[in-house]
Structure formats: C-alpha cells, structure tokens
Simulated scan of single mutants.
Amino acid sequence: MYAIRHVIVVDTNGGGNFSTVQGAIDMVPEHNTQRVKIYILPGTIREKIYIPITKPYISFIGQMNHTSRTILTWHDLASDKNQYGIALETYNSASVTIESDYFCATRITFENSAVPVRRGQGNQVVALRIAGDKAMFYKARFLGKQDTLLDESGTHFFYKCFIQGRVDFVFGRARSLYKECHLNSIAKRSGAIAAHHRDSPDDLSNVFIHFPVGKQG
C-alpha cells in the first residue's frame, strides 16, 4: 500500500507501517537524496527521537487540525544522568534531535514533559534540538519549561508555530526566520524569551516577524 522508502505511516495503535517514529527513521537509507514523508497519526508517542546527519530530506507530517493531539514527547532533564553516570547537560536533554539537512515538520507537537525539581543548574528541558540546515516547521508546537527550542545551527524557517516555555525558550546559534509564531510564556514572574548565542558582535541572529507574545501562569 505504501512505498516504504518514500511514504511511511506511524500509528501507535498498530495500523501503520511502524508503531514508533524512530523505527520509521531507521528505515530511511543513509545519504538519502529523495524526500521521505513520515505520516504520524494522532497520539502521544513517548520516545527519544534522533535523526543523524546522514539522513536528510525527512518530513514529519501530522493530520490537519490534530496538531495538539500528535505529540512527540520525552522527559529528560539536563541534570539527569546517562548510562555512565554523567549528566546529560542541555544539549542531550532534547526529546527530538535533528542533525540532518532539509528536515520538515507540519502539525506536530514536540514536547519535553520533565518537571524541574531543583533550583540552580540542570533544569533545562529541551523539546527539540535542530542542528542541520534548511529545516522548515509549519504549524508545529514546541512545549517545555526552560530552554524549550534549541535552534542550534543552520538557517531554518518557522511559520505559524507555537513555542512555550518559562525562560530562554528559544536559544542557540542558528540564523532562523520566525514568522507569525506565537511565543507563550508560562513564567510565574518574568523571564527572557530568547537567548541567542553570538561569538562576536557581528554575528547574525534569529529574526522574528509578526509574532504575538502571550503569558499563562
């Protein structure tokens, strides 16, 4: 029914080609040169997801009007330990990591559901880390607390997305365009929305156009 290398369906109820997103990613050939569309049916998918640099041209596609019900979520804190007893740090706390180029996502919710339990260091909970180049996100949602969206490197386009956090919830070194994105603060008092890293005053930063800012909490 589906061309497995070009169209893949993920259904947690077992009705698709795979029940996990990572399983679908693993089927994409290394150094792929054609667009692979991974359709993700509504549901809460609890897994840590990784797309390596060797797998470009992957799309995550959710169903129309079901963005809030199509959730990719995990629960790592930066202070959590890996299998060797070493803290994950911010970089590795991401629920979803994209290192490949030409990634696309539409109508998908990316979430880190971890709840910070201590003051000070180690409270970062990244929902998405994007480190490839030329990615596009359309009507996607990014939910977290501190450091929700790590726009690490490259140039990307975020259009009509919803990004939520308490402090520094858009950060990194990338030079991306955010157009008509809703930035929602859940800080109890106050907190910076964006924290762009620059190595010199001449470095370019992200650009936000027509972005409403809201507050809950």
Score class of each variant (00 low, 15 high):
L41S: 12
L41T: 08
S200P: 06
V21I: 08
R69G: 08
A105E: 03
H156S: 06
L72V: 00
G16D: 05
T148L: 04
I71D: 04
G165L: 12
K37Q: 15
I61W: 09
Q124V: 13
K55D: 05
D11I: 00
G172P: 00
F110T: 07
R5Q: 10
K145D: 00
N112G: 03
S95M: 05
F169M: 05
H75D: 14
K134N: 11
N184M: 14
Y2K: 01
S68P: 11
K81Y: 04
A187W: 10
S68Q: 13
L88G: 04
I58F: 15
R129F: 00
S93G: 06
I130F: 01
V115T: 09
R118L: 09
A174S: 07
N112D: 00
I193A: 06
D168K: 12
S190A: 14
A140Y: 06
Y102V: 08
V10M: 01
T90N: 09
A94M: 03
E152Q: 07
V207C: 03
A87W: 10
A195T: 06
M64K: 12
D199H: 08
R35V: 15
S93K: 03
H197G: 12
D26L: 06
S190N: 12
S176D: 00
M27T: 13
Y138N: 04
A94N: 03
Q83Y: 11
Y57C: 12
D202C: 11
K215C: 09
S176E: 03
E111T: 08
T155K: 11
N17M: 05
L72F: 06
A127P: 07
S93H: 06
I193Y: 04
I49D: 15
S93V: 05
